[in-house]
Design a protein around this nucleic acid. Structure first.
Lengths: 199, 199
DNA sequence: GGATGTATGTTGACGGTGTCAAGATATAGC
DNA sequence: GCTATATCTTGACACCGTCAACATACATCC
């Protein structure tokens, strides 16, 4: 028959990942189904299971991509030696909120319940996310050493709380609670003021 | 037959609400199904649909209960006239984190995607949540008037960012990302320091 | 080059979900 | 007592994740 050459798809694993990201960007995590994904790639329902143990592993792989993408942006900030912590943190906060709101569905997947609570995060995913946070903690610590931030709080706590603030704002925005995107700039400035006022 | 008297259940609507809260506390939102709930109450699958238009309306009703419960705690803080904003905010932050972590699944439902993004929040739910936030904003504004907090930032922004911080930390904890419950106290103190250092 | 093993694809099936439509039954109002 | 209405039931449909069994293509070794 004519179609015998495409019995094997070739690079199904990669196509699953990229197509899944398209679906997620369109309809969110809840809009992604293994069957639907297989349909879009014109493949039988269970074909994806030869490349991912289950749906959770697919989601984790996608989240990993997100962390890798974020780490690039993050590194560009960490490699700077900031003269003013206010300026640095303001642009960092902006970058964070931009990433979270522009790839909203991807961000929600990276930090969302489906993976972290309902499912189980892959070891590699845990590693990637931990690395991202740890490098941020290190950066804060380094800034403290340079006298840019006061040392009366542990760098871990500072990192946790400041990241927590950004995360909380992003969740409010992404989930459509209270906040509108237009106030993002203002909120960045506000959090900068708060976090840098005490140094 | 013997069972003819219990054809009508009596107060099914209320029993659905309370039983649903039990399930959610046990297994989280994702563990709650309309059919399973009906089973637990020994009622046919579609009986609940005579009391709630769909699952979303059930979830909203439960979330409403949560906001009413939280508003009680909130009011007890808002009715105080704080002498020291540091002390007030620290105990407030503690109360917030306690509420969010002790009724973790309920909190996640109140602020989670299933209602706010995937589903559509009921008008009454939107009102309740908006009221809770607005009363917090008013309180901040009042504190500014009394000179307890500096006025160089709008009360709205201050409220948004501080609530956002608490929310972000709660999400990290509840979703099982990075943070352990033991550091909760410390994080409270840290955020207090940050938010009160600039007044 | 033909046999064999492995990776990858397929169909069929099971139990789960939300929810609509149509019918049954109990209560409430006239 | 009749009728309207609220409530509950069964049946059905279209999804979903995933397991088991089978089919096909490719890779390897003799």
């Amino acid at each position: 028959m004519a179609g015998k050459s495409n019995y094997h798809h070739g690079d199904l694993r990669q196509e699953l990942l990229t197509e899944a990201q398209v679906v997620i960007a369109e309809k969110g995590v809840e809009g992604l189904s293994m069957r639907g994904l297989a349909d879009r790639l014109e493949v039988s329902r269970t074909a994806p299971y030869h490349h991912f143990k289950d749906k959770n592993e697919l989601l984790c792989a996608i989240a990993e991509d997100g962390f890798r993408r974020w780490q690039v942006t993050l590194n560009s900030f960490l490699n700077q030696t900031p003269e003013s912590i206010e300026v640095w943190f303001e642009s960092f906060a902006r970058a964070y909120l931009d990433f979270a709101t522009e790839s909203a569905e991807h961000y929600d997947l990276m930090f969302g319940r489906p993976i972290w609570k309902q499912g189980k995060p892959t070891e590699s995913l845990k590693q990637l996310s931990y690395d991202a946070f740890q490098s941020y903690v290190d950066f804060v610590h380094q800034c403290q050493h340079q006298g840019l931030i006061s040392e009366d709080q542990s760098s871990l706590r500072l990192a946790q709380v400041s990241w927590g603030t950004l995360h909380g704002l992003c969740r409010f925005i992404n989930d459509g609670i209270y906040l509108d995107r237009d106030s993002v700039k203002d909120m960045c400035k506000s959090s900068v003021k708060l976090f840098t006022a005490c140094e």
